[in-house]
């Protein structure tokens, strides 16, 4: 952060971090959704329905 003097450099840094977080978020959400619904016995086929 010390050496960031322009808005462009700031955005380059923050957006790069953000994109990494986006990937983590997408994978995390998918996994968590599965974790949430896996045990619902009446929804056995939940995270991957067939259609």
């Amino acid at each position: 952060m010390e050496g960031i003097l322009t808005l462009h450099d700031f955005m380059l840094y923050t957006k790069s971090v953000t994109y990494i977080l986006v990937v983590v978020a997408l994978l995390g959400l998918a996994g968590f959704f599965w974790f949430l619904n896996e045990r619902d016995e009446d929804d056995q086929d939940e995270p991957g329905i067939e259609h």
Binding site: T18, Y19, L21, V22, A25, L26, L29, A30, F33
Partner: peptide, 11 residues
């Protein structure tokens, strides 16, 4: 808006 869509759309 990009990361917000990515984080909240799946929800």
């Amino acid at each position: 808006a990009v990361p917000m869509i990515a984080a909240l759309w799946p929800v």
